[in-house]
Nucleic acid binder design. Structure first.
Lengths: 238, 238
DNA sequence: CCGTGCCAAATTGTATACAATATTATAAAC
DNA sequence: GTTTATAATATTGTATACAATTTGGCACGG
């Protein structure tokens, strides 16, 4: 007897809850800093507290939620300093992904990457901002997938999620748009030559420049207090 | 009223359970592949199923435990391929750590690093293998701490844990010992010069060579079946 | 003799009830 | 009026009870 490589279904409530909550956090439906009352979310998701709490522990482990014992959970605030640190690691991961992708990617995958890049350029020219950002993410995800490294893929995904959250609430400079497309053009040239070192270096550079822009855009929106779902808390009187 | 920066006690049962179980897994007390029956561990830890299950979910998120819905949890097997992938990422992280440590470390920290290195050499000459490995880990942890990057620190710790597990059950080649000390000597020279690039490169190289040795030692011990969780004594911690 | 379908036991998944802690409101003292 | 102590409330942490699913065994049919 052999265990099937892919389980038919792995639907447990806490697992679904993790995905649901993560999506809610990344979509901004649960903004950074808000308290996460258990009972309220329970009836909202139609589940009991037990699976919800298990989901919160997982999300805390991922860094999307902060657990304060006996004081409730909050959606993790977006700290510019932390985002800066994440980007420093991300640079290294992008470089690694670019290098490994050149080494391990198939021709079919490179062709697909080319098509995605064409789509990106088209969307840029058409000014379709939302579509552009989606394609942009897909391209980077594709590069990471071509690296053939599950550990890299998982780590990358975790950081990408946090960065996505930072970008969305910073909605950052449009002036960077053209620059970003040019950089994409640059590392795509390296990819077409299968130049691993160059591709990695350009990807890292692209990440670094993105970091600068995002963090700069993030600075004004620095004050991340603890908010309640209804409204701000009246804290200081005088 | 002021909130203390460090909570006096953050003792919740599930949090303690996470640390306890993680230690048990890393110490080899719970070897890879063994089933983790909830009720048995409950009475062993003196807690109820609820906090234990929350702990299992967290450890699953960290990759130390595999959850199979309705079929119980097992300690994550050590897959040589996965370890290889982890090491690929680890190389990049070591390089980054070395570079950042040169940039951000204080003189006091570099002095401490020097002392730790002296201790390492002494322990090598004395043939104190266990003490050597401990100091070795402390050195690398210190370098990462000097990088001043919490995201790097957390990611590094997660991978280091998995690698530690692989090393312990591979108990790998003694012939590599001398080589490893020489490599330490090498990147320490770069550190003394605060040569960020060189230090990073040598650390990455050190990591890569370690990977080769560990994976090679791991190959014989490949077959990782599902064992039952009896209180099996660790074979020999040489 | 081997394969298939069904039934029983065990273990996990979920819900609910109870206990402990933090927060807020209240009131008394200075 | 401000501050501090105390009690009430609400929310989280834990334990237990119930439901669902998998696993192993057994009978039946081929």
């Amino acid at each position: 007897m052999k265990a099937p490589a892919r389980p038919i279904r792995r639907a447990t409530l806490h697992h679904s809850a993790v995905e649901e909550l993560r999506a809610m956090i990344l979509d901004g439906e649960l903004p950074p800093g808000v308290r996460v009352p258990e009972v309220q979310l329970c009836e909202q998701l139609g589940i009991s507290r037990t699976p919800l709490r298990e989901a919160l522990r997982v999300l805390s482990s991922e860094g999307l939620v902060e657990l304060r014992p006996h004081r409730g959970a909050i959606v993790a605030p977006v700290d510019p300093g932390e985002i800066g640190a994440i980007f420093e690691v991300m640079d290294a991961l992008e470089r690694l992904a670019g290098t490994l992708a050149c080494r391990n990617g198939s021709d079919a995958e490179f062709a697909k990457l080319d098509r995605m890049h064409d789509q990106l350029v088209t969307q840029h020219e058409a000014g379709e901002r939302a579509a552009y950002f989606l394609t942009n993410r897909q391209i980077h995800t594709q590069i990471v997938a071509m690296a053939r490294n599950p550990a890299l893929e998982a780590t990358y995904a975790g950081f990408a999620a946090k960065i996505l959250r930072a970008r969305s609430l910073a909605n950052y400079d449009t002036g960077r748009w053209q620059e970003s497309v040019d950089e994409h053009e640059g590392f795509m040239k390296a990819f077409r030559r299968r130049d691993a070192e160059e591709a990695g270096a350009l990807l890292a550079d692209h990440s670094r420049r993105t970091a600068v822009a995002v963090i700069q855009a993030l600075r004004p929106a620095a004050a991340q207090g603890e908010k309640t779902a209804a409204g701000a808390e009246p804290m200081d009187a005088g």
